[in-house]
Computed example of a mutant assay.
Amino acid sequence: MTTPTKPPTTDQIRTAWDTLAPGFDRHTTPHTMQFGEQILAEAAVGPGTRFLDVAAGSGALALPAARRGARVVAVDIAPAMVERLASRARAEGLEQVRALVMDGEHLDLDDDAFDVSASLNGVSLFPDLGRGLAEMARVTRPGGTVLVAAFGPPQKAEFIAWTLGALRAAVPGFAGLPTDPPPLPFRLADPERFAAVLREAGLGEVTVRQAVMDTPFGSATELLDTIRSSHPLGAQWIAGLTEAQSTEVRQILEGMLRERSGGAPGAVLHTTINVATGTP
């Protein structure tokens, strides 16, 4: 049994993600953008699609959608994330991207304004998940698509599972991930619960399928940089290490990567992602 903790305030959430933004943009977005391209192709996002990216980070869904010709609005609660998304869009000449600072639980957007509203490991982190999903449904036109992708089980996110294993080996008493309840990134790991939550938000024709995100890591350092920048919890894990523990964790991970790749310094790790769609 775990001790209840007070949920973070909106300002605390904003500050945490603002702090992570430089590393998130450098390490996490390039990895997840390839997966974003994959699921957008399957959702038939194309020229003229009115597309909303909720909790957009620095653009793993928004930018691939714009490249496909969609008219994109991307929102995130963290101003630093929004600025990095806008900078990426400007660098690519994607003038059809509007990047806005906005709380996804309270979208300042019109009803029925989008053909597709999507979120990749974003709305699943909201303190009020049901509210976030209901807002996505509200701003999506009848017959449109709400697309939500979220992590499957932690053990099937190898970049996390491998790091947790290395931390347990190097840090006496390391607690790892809580299980009751699980951390927010894994609250939709069960496909049946995921589908039920979407239906509770007012969506119909709900489907949930599992996909695999393949992520190449060139070194243990790159892997740890990704863990550090991808979520405040990962940042806490790495920040709490002594120099000796950090060295040991890195050595363990280097060995695991080399074993996976047959002796090369880097390897591809696999992550199961639940990809759900529903219709308002």
Rank of each mutant, 00 (worst) to 15 (best):
A175M: 11
L40N: 02
V101H: 00
A91Q: 11
G143K: 01
L94I: 07
D103M: 03
G59F: 01
E205F: 11
L129M: 06
V146Y: 01
D214G: 14
P79I: 02
K156I: 14
G69K: 00
G36C: 08
A80M: 05
P30Q: 06
A86K: 01
F194H: 03
T2L: 12
V148Q: 02
H27T: 14
P22W: 05
G144L: 00
T29H: 01
R141P: 12
M1C: 13
L164D: 11
E259L: 11
V123M: 02
A70M: 04
V171A: 05
N121R: 06
G173M: 05
T221A: 15
T29W: 02
F126H: 04
R258V: 15
T215W: 01
G234Y: 01
R14M: 06
D111K: 06
G152V: 13
L129I: 10
R88S: 11
L164P: 06
M33C: 12
P4G: 12
H106G: 11
G173Y: 03
D25I: 02
A113Y: 01
A235I: 09
Q236F: 09
T32K: 00
R14T: 13
A66C: 09
D128P: 13
P7A: 12
A169T: 09
G218R: 03
G57D: 08
V82G: 05
T271V: 12
I13W: 05
P30T: 02
L257I: 13
L257K: 02
L52G: 08
A44S: 14
A157S: 12
D103E: 15
R228C: 10
E205N: 14
M213P: 06
A43T: 09
R26Q: 12
A80F: 01
F186G: 05
I77C: 07
G173L: 05
T215C: 06
P181D: 12
V268Q: 04
R258E: 15
D115Q: 08
E248K: 03
S124H: 04
V249N: 02
H231C: 10
G204P: 10
S229H: 02
Q251N: 14
T242P: 06
R67N: 09
L100F: 08
M102S: 11
V249Y: 03
T49N: 03
T277V: 10
H231T: 09
A157L: 08
E42F: 07
S58A: 13
R68W: 04
F35Q: 00
T3C: 13
I13S: 07
A170Q: 01
T28W: 01
F159K: 02
G218Y: 04
E42C: 11
P280R: 00
T10W: 10
L63P: 02
A169S: 13
Q38I: 14
G165L: 04
A196G: 15
V75P: 03
G278Q: 02
G57V: 07
L164V: 15
G234W: 00
A74E: 05
A60V: 07
A137N: 03
S87A: 15
A91H: 05
I252A: 12
R50D: 15
V139E: 07
E42A: 12
F126Q: 01
P153W: 03
P127D: 14
T19Y: 10
S229N: 03
V148I: 13
A118P: 08
A175E: 11
G263H: 06
T163E: 12
I273L: 06
T5V: 15
A166F: 01
A78C: 10
R84H: 05
I252T: 10
